[in-house]
Amino acid sequence: MTTLFLSWAIIIIAVFSIAFFGARKSRLKAAGQSQVEEINRVLPDLKEEFSTELTPSGSLPEYQFPREELPHSYGIDRLVLLARDPYWLYAYWEVTATKMAEFSSTHGAWETSWPVLRVYDVTGITFNGQNANQYIDIGINDQADNWHINTGEPDRTFCVDLGRQFPDGRFITLLRSNTVTTPRASLSDREDEEWMWIEGIYRSIRHQYGISSPLFAEEIAERARTIPLGVSSPGHWPEY
């Protein structure tokens, strides 16, 4: 599908990138005289054969979609954490007015504290709020309701608290996220092997990992020129 989509994207881009067959121009003169002149005036150097992409303008016919926007909030306290890649997490949240009021009445005025994301490394443990391997704090602002978090740590497990910090150093948790594990970014160092028959019979064999996988140095930029502008479909070539 992606290749098809990309071609369409290009078509739409090219809607106003007018190209002409130099060789055939005379044949078409009678019918398209005024247009040709107009284009030649606007783009004088397009008289020769030409093909490129220009920025689209104008508008396409539109289906009338509903106009109302999606709700900004759903009245549910939640903090959801997703792993984007080996190095980045993404968190979004919603804090309800009730939760804010509760917090203020228990811990003091909302305005005297500031929002903080506390990112816990909880790899290999059952997290109870106190036993994280380590954590980092990210100061955010009161308008933010989502954050891209750079951990730089593949193959580690994380949990995030959205909380508020007071001038005296107190950190009070408002919401706690689910836990996620970032993907690996390299070969595993676990070389022992386990084998399985689909019928459920297991056996173990020790064997050296022996095949060198093909090595790549890649060229995403070049690919973009000729073939389906490598976006989704195989758009990357990892190195081992």
Binding site: A83, R84, P183, W195, I198, S232, G235
Partner: peptide, 23 residues
Amino acid sequence: PCNQVVTPCASSWGNKGYNEVWL
């Protein structure tokens, strides 16, 4: 029918190999 048991790596075939294109 007999194959090695591993836990695959979270991945995709999108640009950079993980979830970034869709997130």
